[in-house]
Design a protein around this nucleic acid. Sequence first.
DNA 1: GTAACTTTGCAACCCGGTTGCACTTCCTTT
DNA 2: AAAGGAAGTGCAACCGGGTTGCAAAGTTAC
Lengths: 142, 142
Amino acid sequence: MPSGMTDEDKKRQLDSRDIKPTAMRELVLDVLSRQTAAIGLPELEAHFEKADRTTLYRTLKTFEEKKLIHKIVDGTGTVKYALCSETCECEPDDLHVHFLCEKCGKTYCLYDIPVPTINLPHGFKLEGVNMVINGICASCRK
Amino acid sequence: MPSGMTDEDKKRQLDSRDIKPTAMRELVLDVLSRQTAAIGLPELEAHFEKADRTTLYRTLKTFEEKKLIHKIVDGTGTVKYALCSETCECEPDDLHVHFLCEKCGKTYCLYDIPVPTINLPHGFKLEGVNMVINGICASCRK
DNA sequence: GTAACTTTGCAACCCGGTTGCACTTCCTTT
DNA sequence: AAAGGAAGTGCAACCGGGTTGCAAAGTTAC
């Protein structure tokens, strides 16, 4: 889901998710769209000289609420986020598997690999799934 | 994996995992064996009047290293732990799915539901999987 | 009994996440 | 254009889980 997005694209993308396109938000979306791996708040912070943590925090939060991005809990202690595909509604059917590389620490969306269906015991209601595989990624094995 | 364990049982269990059976460790194992849901450090702490966080922290750590318990990252911000089955070596084949109830906040091991096999993209090496389903548990839906 | 090692306890720290509040910006209404 | 209200931003401070360093206590080997 990387890069190559005009300002207009960005505005449209925010608009399509009902997010008021402020300057800050466009900048954050821009950073997000350039990532090849999921990004956490601390790392996002590092992409800006002057922006403050709270604003970025809240930006991510609204992006998540509006389903522009999704949260990934990979066990590293930092919650990470990545852009949703355009049609994603973050329903169980939309979910994919994630991969955390032990070596480089990066967390990748495996957009092509849907989260497998699970038959829960009787009485349990499924609402979401967080599936993270850990191991060594292709680039680190080369 | 609940309760009903004699002191001898506990010593044996620690022993089988190469953990020197100190008083503290037996107490912690005792608490762990009484749980119906996974437990985190803060909650474990609350089970003791006087024991100190660090010791419990390190106890969990060695238990985990020795594969007596396994870690569950459920996204609540607290890492949780639950006893491994006796034969568990924490290899991918040994892993099961976990369930976090949004309502009661408890995290359950679904020991009967193995983590599905995933075909990773070429070049990726799988070492472990953390799969947590969230929703409403059977007791909370009653 | 003493030396070497392990475990425990205390204190302090780190860091990600989060909240409260004041200030600014933007949008609406007149 | 001005006033009012809502939404967004920035600062400061806080919270809580996790983690480390170090000294004291306990254990084990000789």
